[in-house]
Amino acid sequence: MAQSLLPFVLFALVACISPGPTNLLILAHGAQRGLRASVAPILSGCLAAAGMVWVVGLGLAEVLLQHPVAQQLMSWLGVLWLSWLGWQLLRSAAAPLHGTQRARFGAVSAATLQLINPKVWMMAIAIIGVFAAPGQPVWQLALIFLIIALPCMTAWALLGVGSARWLQSPQRVRRFNQLLAWLLIVSAWSALLA
């Protein structure tokens, strides 16, 4: 594992810090609710993704690869749900940043999003396919991934917290929410079409 640790860490860092549906929603949540309120979704999202690496390493990858229809169904369900979330963000684009009518992006939502996110499944399969060494406990890869994912997703929440200072006018809030909504929709569909 030692010789493949650095490439794995770099891969995990890029996978965790790059824009994706969960990171974009954590960004929006951080802007709307602050860092303290974002801790639970960050933890659950990171734990769910690390859990997926572990489960895929235990053999789920083989099952998914043997059943391409199940893969496609999961991908389509994930993209449709992410598109719905993007649509909801577009519809509420002009709502006040700290308004009470906004739905919370909580721990369950973050974990569920990871479970249906095609990008996370592809990443978990890639980790096991490329970095898992024979005889290596899969939990080690999952734990290292978790350790990398936590500060990466926290950085997105902090970016949201920092952007809240800039989002003082209704026009800026509307543009910010519209941008996040479109990025969410594009990232979901690009993962499916890739």
Rank of each mutant, 00 (worst) to 15 (best):
A124G: 05
A28Q: 15
A188L: 13
A49W: 06
L35Q: 04
V120W: 03
G20Q: 13
S109G: 09
A155E: 09
A94D: 14
A95M: 06
L27D: 08
G129M: 10
F11R: 13
R91Y: 05
A40V: 11
A191N: 09
A28C: 14
M123S: 07
S109D: 05
L89T: 15
V39A: 15
Q178H: 14
V55H: 01
A95P: 00
A31P: 03
W84S: 11
S92W: 07
A48E: 05
R104M: 12
L64K: 02
L183T: 01
L65W: 00
S109K: 07
A149I: 04
Q66H: 07
S83D: 11
S83G: 09
L58N: 06
S44A: 14
Q178T: 13
V108A: 15
L73E: 00
M52R: 04
L80S: 12
L10M: 12
L10Y: 10
Q140S: 13
T100W: 10
R165L: 00
L115A: 15
G51C: 08
V53Y: 00
F176G: 06
F11K: 13
R104A: 10
V120N: 08
P21S: 15
W76V: 12
L143C: 07
F8Y: 15
S190N: 06
L179S: 12
P21K: 09
L10I: 15
I26H: 09
V138Q: 03
L77F: 12
P96K: 14
S187V: 10
L150W: 05
L150D: 05
G34C: 05
V108N: 06
A107G: 04
P96G: 14
R102K: 11
L141S: 07
G30V: 12
R165C: 05
G34P: 01
A31D: 12
C16L: 12
F176C: 04
A93S: 15
R174T: 05
I147Y: 09
P96D: 15
A61K: 11
L113A: 04
P118R: 12
